[in-house]
Every structure is written in structure tokens, then in C-alpha cells.
Design a protein around this nucleic acid. Structure first.
Lengths: 219, 219
DNA sequence: GTATGTGAAACCGTTCACAGCA
DNA sequence: TGCTGTGAACGGTTTCACATAC
């Protein structure tokens, strides 16, 4: 019998499949904007740089969203993937450490489908405090707990020196109750099992590039 | 017989091993600063959140850097990993599209071990052109080819609208001759086989967080 | 006829266990 | 004795091939 759509998968889904679902969602959104109504796994696969069994396999973790012999309805599949990923609501982000990158993030504060929004920010530099960026007023670092609770922050975005990152993470978890942290610092943050951390570090990508540049050409 | 140190590996090394080598290098650099001279695979593994066979296996793709029964010399291993990754020289970066994020990158322009340096930047916004950030003067977009060639740019860093990304990439490859591109745009850039692309996109990390937050708690 | 969904097969990366060496 | 380096075993992801459904 066919599995219920979007039900919880019985087996663990590889993290890499989840990343690909994000990709699929983006391409589907583009197709939807173009008015395309149907798509096959091979067309979607080509658009994402993977192959078609991969697409079908990734989707099959969560159920059958397609029509045999036909393909997938773009709008429906996009809706289902968004639901799987939890992107059918807006997530409230709180930024710790404004700096240049943080300023860029707050000024942007614009996501493809309003899945995210920065709702609070704080910094320990007095020059930053009270500065207004978009709709956000920078709070002093000491008021983080109060401000983030008031703003109902769900995900903490850490953008401070790696030395302070662990302490801030602890405070976010215990004081604000966040279960997700996006970490732009170089720190390797430890946290309880119910909290999830994603690290963002473009120098790792640069290092990968360098290896490939170096290993593919004579020295 | 023992393999030559740092020689080209006979089999393809998984990309994920390369990422871990970057991590090892960072931790080793920290140990070196602390004056630690020797390290075992398990100590290094713990510091990087992996396990010791993983470390030994990753290193064994490139040769034997350790001393049996003892461990690895921190300085020597760091030197070898840097050589493997191609970080024993400074790579020259050229930025296309300054914007807020680009400004942050140029202002920073400071890497842990001087492995990278932005040496040129351009933007199509007349308000950005001629602006000076650190040592870099923003060039007009139309002068990119000339300016990047003059500055001997080796890696292009794309930070513009995804609509223009492919065209800029083509120009970087054909006009400037870069073989590596760091792509901060949402575009899926196509390129010849001898060119390498790394995409940086923190919203993918956010999506992963959301999935885990959503799937680990009742809706 | 055509494309999905899925069990089976192939592949690849990780972990194990131990031989080899300081 | 202790830790590295490595071939072998394991586990998990990707790919294949085909039954199924439209």
C-alpha cells in the first residue's frame, strides 16, 4: 500500500538527502514562477546536477508525490517538500554579534520565500548598541536573554569571536531555549543532544578549491 | 614499502576527507601555538569531533606522516597537510560584486595563515566604484578583465545576483583564466571540467536546521 | 507508452583489527 | 609497550532495473 504523504520516515534520512531536498525546492520554485506545471524526475535532476534515481530515492523517503507515467505536479511537490523541511512557517532568527557580516545579514533580512526573518540582534560593542538596521534595533549583549525571549527567537545566529562562542551558545540554549544554532564562528560548539548546530565557514570551501587546483595541476 | 610523503595519491581522495584535512590543519595550528609538539590520532580526532581510525585513514591517502608507537609531530604534520591542500602559498582572490557581504569580506581580508588575500574587486554600481576598502580600490565592472589580470587573480569570488552569475563566471574563466570560483550567489554555475566551483550558501544550512527541528519535535 | 516507486546490486566511505615498527 | 598504517569487514548511500500505475 502507498505510504501516507509527508509522514515521518520510518528510517533515518541521510543529511545529504535533506540538502538535496532544499535544492529541489529552489528549482521547483523557479519552475513555478515560470508557470511550469509538471516536471519529471530527470528534468528536476538535470536542473540540480544530480541524476533521476537520486531524486526519486530522496523523495521516496517521505512518500509518493508523483504520478506514474507522468511526473510530478510542480506546485504540489514544492508544497510537500516545504512541509517536510519545516519551511511552511517562518522561523525567527536572533543574531549575536553584528559586525560587518552581521550588518550585511540584517540589511538583507530577505529570504526567498519568507521562511526566515531576523527579529532581534545584540552586540557587546557600545558603538553598535541602539543602532537601527532595517526593523531591528541592536540590543546590548547583556540584554540578549530578555530581548531574544521577548522577540520569540527560535534559532540563534552566532557571529562573534570563537573564544566567546561556546558561552553564548550555552546562554542561548539555557536562557532563551533555542534548539537550533547557525554558527558563523570558527568554534567547535558542544551542545546537548536536543540542540542542533550548523556551522558556516567559507574558508573550508576555499581550502577545498585549493586542494583541487593544486592536485589537478603540476606543481 | 612506504609511500613517499605528500606524493599524489594513486586513488581519488573523497572530498569529505579533504574537508577534514582542513579541520585537522586548524586544530594542529592551535596546538602549535600552544607549544604542543606531539599529538596522537585519538587526541587530534577528539579535537575535531571524529574518531582516530578516520584521522589515520585520511592521512594515509597521502603517506605516512607519523611515528609508530609515538604519534605525529605537530609542526611536521601541519606542514605536510598545508602542502597537500596547497596552502603553502598565498592564493590571490578577486571579488565580483561588493555589496554588504563583499564589503565585509574586503574589510576583513585577513586569513588565519595568510593563505588567501583579496587583491582586486569590482562592482557595477557607480556608487561603489573607486571606493577604497583596505588596500583595494573598487574597479568598474567593465574593467574586471583588465584589473583582475593586472592583479594576477587566481580565484574568483562571485557575489552578485544569480541572474548574472553564469556570465561573470564565463568571463572569469575565459578572460582572466581562473580555474577556481567561490560562488556566493544562488546560481548553479556550469563550467568546463578544468575549472572548480564551490558554492557557499548559508540558507542551505538553515534549511537543514529547520528539518531537524521540525522532524525531532511533534508538529 | 511513459515515468514513478522500490527492492536488489554496486559502490564508496568508515570502522575494525592487527601487523609492523619505534 | 604503544601508536601508526593498512587490508579486510562493515554499513550506508547511490544506482540500477523492473513491476506498477496512469
Amino acid at each position: 500500500m502507498k505510504q501516507m504523504k509527508s509522514s515521518k520516515p520510518p528510517v533515518a534520512v541521510p543529511a545529504i538527502s535533506i540538502s538535496r531536498l532544499s535544492l529541489y525546492a529552489r528549482r521547483l520554485a523557479t519552475l513555478e514562477r515560470k508557470g511550469v506545471e509538471m516536471v519529471t524526475s530527470s528534468v528536476l535532476a538535470d536542473a540540480c546536477g544530480v541524476n533521476s534515481p537520486q531524486v526519486r530515492n530522496d523523495l521516496s523517503y517521505f512518500g509518493g508525490f508523483g504520478v506514474k507515467g507522468v511526473g510530478y505536479y510542480v506546485g504540489e511537490l514544492l508544497f510537500e517538500i516545504r512541509k517536510i523541511l519545516g519551511l511552511d512557517k517562518q522561523w525567527r532568527l536572533g543574531l549575536i554579534g553584528v559586525g560587518d557580516l552581521g550588518t550585511a545579514l540584517l540589511k538583507q533580512n530577505q529570504f526567498a520565500n519568507d521562511e526566515y526573518a531576523f527579529v532581534a540582534a545584540c552586540d557587546k560593542d557600545p558603538k553598535q548598541v541602539s543602532r537601527q538596521i532595517g526593523e531591528i534595533t541592536i540590543e546590548p549583549f547583556d540584554s540578549m536573554e530578555r530581548a531574544f525571549n521577548a522577540a520569540k527567537v527560535e534559532i540563534g545566529v552566532i557571529n562573534i569571536s570563537h573564544r566567546l562562542a561556546q558561552k553564548v551558545a550555552d546562554k542561548l540554549i539555557k536562557g532563551v531555549g533555542v534548539r537550533g544554532i547557525l554558527n558563523f564562528s570558527a568554534a567547535d560548539i558542544q551542545c546537548p543532544k536536543h540542540v542542533f548546530i550548523e556551522n558556516v565557514d567559507f574558508t573550508l570551501s576555499l581550502d577545498k578549491l585549493c586542494y583541487r587546483l593544486t592536485s589537478s595541476s603540476p606543481r
